[in-house]
Simulated assay, not measured.
Amino acid sequence: MKEITTIEVQNLIEKGEQLHVVDVREADEVAAGTIPGAIHIPLGDIPARISELDVSKSYILICRSGARSGRATAFLTEKGYDVANMVGGILEWEGETE
């Protein structure tokens, strides 16, 4: 499974990289703050909403600590998507949130 650290994600944002971030937490968790521009698809909805993701793009998956996004990363990798799990999740995120 591909992984990326919170520091690596922050560095990419600071360099102006166009990132595709998917937050797999529940709505109440996302309401407390997420990475700017992240799209919200709760983990349990990933199979039903997979068509919302473009298989030609790379995605960074995030959650609270990295466990749920790890499960989503494994699932999407099996389906042919280029995805990376942000290890440490929002708990370790030090950048801006919205």
Score class of each variant (00 low, 15 high):
58 S>Y: 12
91 L>H: 11
70 G>Q: 06
96 E>V: 13
45 D>I: 02
50 I>H: 04
91 L>W: 13
62 I>Y: 10
36 P>K: 01
92 E>P: 12
89 G>Y: 12
94 E>N: 14
58 S>Q: 07
28 D>R: 00
17 E>L: 05
11 N>G: 11
22 V>Q: 07
96 E>D: 15
67 A>G: 11
28 D>M: 09
70 G>A: 08
50 I>P: 14
39 I>W: 03
70 G>F: 05
95 G>L: 09
4 I>A: 15
54 D>Y: 09
89 G>E: 01
56 S>H: 08
90 I>E: 02
71 R>Y: 02
34 T>V: 14
79 K>F: 02
92 E>Y: 12
52 E>D: 08
75 F>P: 00
47 P>N: 01
97 T>R: 08
41 I>A: 01
20 H>G: 01
58 S>L: 00
24 V>S: 03
5 T>D: 04
36 P>T: 01
77 T>N: 06
73 T>G: 12
80 G>R: 07
19 L>Q: 04
70 G>K: 03
31 A>T: 15
11 N>R: 11
71 R>H: 00
97 T>E: 08
1 M>P: 08
26 E>M: 12
27 A>P: 15
27 A>I: 15
48 A>C: 14
26 E>W: 03
83 V>Y: 11
51 S>F: 14
90 I>Y: 05
59 Y>N: 05
69 S>C: 13
89 G>T: 09
12 L>T: 06
13 I>S: 03
27 A>T: 09
37 G>M: 08
82 D>N: 15
61 L>F: 14
85 N>W: 07
87 V>H: 09
84 A>C: 08
72 A>K: 10
53 L>S: 10
4 I>S: 11
49 R>L: 07
8 E>F: 11
90 I>Q: 07
22 V>A: 00
78 E>V: 01
63 C>A: 06
43 L>D: 02
89 G>C: 05
39 I>N: 02
67 A>V: 13
81 Y>D: 03
42 P>F: 04
67 A>C: 05
55 V>C: 02
88 G>K: 05
78 E>G: 10
40 H>A: 12
80 G>W: 10
32 A>Q: 15
98 E>D: 12
6 T>E: 06
97 T>S: 11
33 G>E: 01
97 T>Q: 03
47 P>H: 06
22 V>G: 01
84 A>P: 03
98 E>F: 15
57 K>Q: 07
36 P>W: 02
9 V>T: 14
57 K>M: 08
6 T>K: 06
42 P>A: 02
1 M>Y: 13
19 L>A: 03
68 R>Y: 06
9 V>I: 03
95 G>W: 03
72 A>I: 05
15 K>I: 10
27 A>L: 00
19 L>T: 02
85 N>D: 10
66 G>K: 01
83 V>T: 14
39 I>S: 09
91 L>C: 01
62 I>P: 12
88 G>H: 09
10 Q>V: 12
46 I>Q: 05
91 L>I: 14
38 A>F: 11
58 S>T: 13
43 L>T: 06
82 D>H: 14
81 Y>C: 04
78 E>N: 12
72 A>N: 02
6 T>C: 09
26 E>D: 12
16 G>D: 01
69 S>I: 00
37 G>P: 13
40 H>P: 00
71 R>N: 12
55 V>E: 04
63 C>R: 04
72 A>Y: 13
54 D>L: 05
78 E>S: 03
82 D>M: 04
73 T>D: 04
92 E>M: 14
30 V>R: 13
20 H>V: 15
83 V>D: 05
